[in-house]
């Protein structure tokens, strides 16, 4: 009988299996434990230089910094929370300044082929320069380490946002522009209601890259200037406290990850099914 075929098979007892995520998590934990174990063994067996702390010392120190983030015993002895706030304040201010330059300029060169061609040589020459090369120039111009930090971060934040904004604005699907033209929309209305929303996913992805690079650069800039998490790293190197340096590396990484995640959420929100 044919309908016998369609009758559902009796439920089999499924063998116990982990799904992909669970397997990956187990592997992650395994790698972490093996790494920490080898580190601990190596340090106890004195395989490394004496300056290198053991894993357990590092974790203890990490806990010290995390459990007590806000103390202030003068500029060279601050809790990790205050240090992070200093660095974040600089990165966000510099990033906002850079963004305020990059987005309008990107829109302008995206809309005008003439401006685009005229400005392109400047962008192409300045873009590949390490942001730190601007630092002495900033010091000379600003005569102030705080403002120099903002200057360097602002310059760093300009390029990816500028280039992505230009790309987004000049590559709007012509179909959307045709719709606006057939309705007789004004130039201003086309820019604000069509071109900018259409370019938003590109603009946000530029901002995401800019902020990531700004966060990379702030540590290096602060080593050369003063204050913040970068200066902390350098200071602890002078104190030969490797545990603090490793702590700082982990925390800088976590904060960077968090900021990138937030921009990822924003990117998804402006994409509406396009490229996401």
């Amino acid at each position: 009988m044919t309908h016998e075929v369609f009758r559902s098979a009796p439920p089999k007892v499924k063998p116990f299996r982990l799904n992909t995520d669970q397997q990956a998590f187990l592997l992650f934990i395994t790698i972490l434990l093996v790494f920490l174990g080898l580190w601990e063994l190596g340090a106890n067996a004195k395989l490394f230089l004496p300056i290198m702390p053991s894993a357990s010392q590092t974790i203890a120190d990490l806990w010290f910094w995390i459990s007590n983030p806000f103390f202030d015993n003068g500029p060279n002895d601050q809790g990790i929370g205050f240090l992070l706030l200093t660095s974040l304040r600089r990165v966000l201010s510099g990033f906002l300044i850079g963004t305020a330059i990059a987005i309008p300029l990107g829109i302008l060169i995206g809309l005008s082929p003439v401006v685009s061609k005229a400005v392109d040589p400047f962008i192409q020459i300045l873009r590949p320069v390490s942001p730190l090369a601007w630092l002495p120039l900033g010091l000379a111009l600003m005569r102030d380490s705080e403002r120099t930090a903002l200057f360097v971060i602002a310059i760093t934040s300009i390029w990816p946002t500028l280039i992505n904004t230009k790309f987004g604005v000049s590559n709007v699907d012509p179909a959307y522009l045709n719709v606006a033209h057939t309705l007789g929309a004004s130039r201003w209305r086309i820019i604000t209601k069509v071109i900018l929303p259409a370019a938003a996913p590109n603009i946000v992805s530029g901002l995401r890259i800019s902020l990531g690079i700004a966060w990379l650069v702030i540590v290096a800039a602060e080593i050369l200037l003063s204050g913040g998490i970068g200066y902390f790293v350098w200071n602890e190197w002078n104190n030969l406290k490797i545990t603090s340096i490793i702590t700082a590396i982990l925390i800088v990484g976590l904060v960077g990850l968090l900021m990138d995640y937030l921009f990822g959420v924003l990117q998804h929100r402006v994409s509406f099914g396009q490229r996401s």
């Binding site: 719709v179 033209h181 057939t182 309705l183 007789g184 402006v270 396009q274």
Partner: peptide, 17 residues
């Protein structure tokens, strides 16, 4: 182009946002 003529496009051309 002008609003005296309404156009229906083959690829819909709806604004995704």
């Amino acid at each position: 182009p002008g609003p005296d003529r309404g156009v229906v496009f083959q690829n819909y051309a709806l604004m995704p946002w």
